[in-house]
């Protein structure tokens, strides 16, 4: 009788310990705050799983041109004989052709094959204009530059992500200017510029 009771007792103690230990796990819920700096409060708000994918497409201008993943041989921004004060500009339509929302940033790179560094002298302006202004050697993006957008080649053009819901489009106008104070050593200098629009799922 006594032995039986003791056994039963030990079993119950063990179970209680286990329950208590398991309780520690639950208590750990209370410790969430300790780790709040990781994720703010998002740990207990449910996690959204994002299906689908994103697909960022581009086209020249806003007209009937087809969208493409990459625009190669892009000549709309070309300018062959820039003298100080000249500018060129072009509108690029960005489309999220995927099934999930995205944000995109833009950056540029430019070559310096003749080591004259025309790319370093050119000034960039990025706006949300849907059409360029001016003509000839003074084509511009007439609007206000997008906040925190880049002003030179070989760097970030858009540093604040622009949201783009699935299947929607937006326009980006890029203007490149040779400042009036450009050095005479830039005569005949050439640069090939590449713009990269990078969409990130959000």
């Amino acid at each position: 009788m006594k032995r039986k009771a003791r056994r039963t007792y030990s079993v119950r103690i063990s179970q209680r310990v286990r329950a208590a230990l398991s309780m520690g796990v639950v208590l750990s819920v209370a410790a969430t705050g300790t780790f709040a700096f990781w994720t703010d409060s998002s740990t207990i708000t449910g996690t959204t799983f994002t299906g689908g994918s994103i697909k960022l497409n581009l086209k020249d201008g806003t007209g009937a041109n087809p969208f493409a993943h990459d625009l190669t041989g892009y000549a709309s921004l070309n300018l062959a004989t820039m003298v100080p004060g000249n500018s060129t500009a072009a509108v690029i339509t960005v489309k999220n052709a995927g099934t999930a929302a995205l944000t995109f940033l833009a950056s540029s790179s430019a070559t310096n094959p003749d080591t004259l560094n025309l790319a370093g002298a050119l000034v960039v302006k990025v706006t949300a204009d849907a059409a360029t202004g001016g003509s000839g050697l003074a084509v511009t993006c007439p609007g206000t530059a997008i906040a925190s957008s880049g002003t030179s080649l070989n760097g970030s053009l858009l540093t604040t992500p622009i949201a783009l819901a699935a299947t929607t489009t937006t326009t980006i106008c890029v203007q490149v200017t040779l400042p009036s104070g450009a050095n005479t050593s830039l005569q005949g200098a050439t640069t090939n510029a590449t713009l990269t629009f990078t969409g990130t799922q959000n």
Partner: peptide, 27 residues
């Protein structure tokens, strides 16, 4: 749940605009 962090193995997709040539005038 307590420690798991939702993490984005985020999709990215980059489109390039290439072929733009800018040349300064030669007197």
């Amino acid at each position: 749940q307590v420690w798991a962090l939702p993490t984005l193995a985020a999709w990215t997709d980059a489109g390039g605009v290439s072929g733009t040539t800018l040349t300064a005038y030669t007197v």
